[in-house]
């Protein structure tokens, strides 16, 4: 039988997860293709939940496809679109259909997305959502009522190691671990020295850390992220390296860089694994794994 994600985390091996972005619409063809491409090569596959506040096919629907096709799904749940009733109902549904891994997130702000006039819910926050899952595991809901059939999840959360200022982030990180997070997938990291400093603190907590990897596809993308994506910092030497790569080989260069970073993270035992965020470049993930020797 397939190893569960929790077993993978506890096995001590270098864990690899990636993510699937569901379609805008009902055409699931390319999502299924990406699932098949990755399902046998990694330990868990996240499905994003209306990522960047853009309305899409639901994350729970994506996880069911992964399940059907023999992969190990990780259900991403944000607090932006559902109140505590809807979140709990979806948690019950996911469990009843065999989903066993959840990633709890706050969710991006509504105005960054494609339904700018929508109401942002945020009835719960990510720490409270983690606690909700742990409460539901005891057979009770958030209202203190008995559940006819409880749930059980391997639950995780995220952290932004390059956030500025970092101290409030670390307090929240600690609260997430205390609330029951078993694993943490980080925002993208590029500066391994910075990340090592983060890990010195994170190591003190009983939680598995998977470093976030985003494939660089051009030096412009790196500059764009530095400017516009909170908590992402691409050091100048990587930007230069991308810029120096001849035209037509930029993606190959990005794959090489990602593979090199992952190999170092693994060989130097800096963290417990990686979470590769493909963001539209799912096809490249197997190449990144090859480049990393995984």
């Amino acid at each position: 039988m397939r190893q569960t994600f929790r077993e993978a985390l506890q096995s001590g091996k270098f864990v690899v997860t990636s993510e699937i972005g569901p379609p805008k619409g009902t055409n699931v063809e390319s999502m299924l293709h990406h699932i098949d491409l990755l399902k046998d090569r990694i330990d868990g596959m996240n499905v994003t939940d209306n990522q960047s506040s853009v309305m899409r096919y639901p994350s729970v629907g994506g996880t069911l496809y992964i399940q059907e096709r023999g992969g190990e799904p990780i259900l991403q749940m944000t607090c932006r679109d559902r109140n505590r009733l809807a979140l709990q109902a979806d948690i019950l549904f996911a469990y009843s259909r065999g989903i066993r891994n959840i990633l709890c997130l706050t969710g991006d702000a509504v105005p960054v997305g494609d339904h700018k006039e929508a109401k942002g819910v945020f009835d719960l926050d990510s720490v409270q959502l983690l606690r909700t899952i742990r409460t539901m595991e005891t057979g009770k809901d958030l209202g203190g009522n008995d559940l006819d059939g409880a749930v059980e999840f391997c639950a995780g959360a995220i952290v932004t190691p390059e956030a500025n200022p970092i101290e409030p982030q670390m307090i929240k990180f600690e609260k997430k671990v205390k609330a029951g997070a078993e694993f943490i997938q980080t925002q993208a990291i590029y500066d391994l020295e910075n990340f090592k400093r983060f890990m010195e603190v994170a190591r003190k907590f009983d939680v598995k850390i998977l470093a976030g990897i985003i494939l660089l596809t051009s030096h412009r993308m790196a500059i764009y992220m530095n400017k516009n994506v909170p908590g992402v910092f691409v050091p100048q030497d990587l930007i230069d390296e991308m810029e120096a790569a001849p035209k037509g080989t930029k993606v190959a260069k990005g794959i090489e860089i990602a593979g090199r970073m992952i190999r170092r993270l693994k060989e130097e035992k800096i963290c417990d694994g990686v979470h590769i965020m493909a963001i539209g470049k799912e096809e490249a993930v197997p190449d990144i794994l090859d480049a990393a020797g995984l």
Binding site: R80, T106, A109, G120, A163, K175, P230, G231
Partner: peptide, 20 residues
């Protein structure tokens, strides 16, 4: 806080400013 969070900042904090 744009999201009314009670347990600390979201990941959108950028140099002490809000993601929105």
């Amino acid at each position: 806080c744009h999201k009314g969070l009670l347990n600390g900042p979201c990941g959108g904090t950028n140099n002490g400013k809000c993601e929105i």
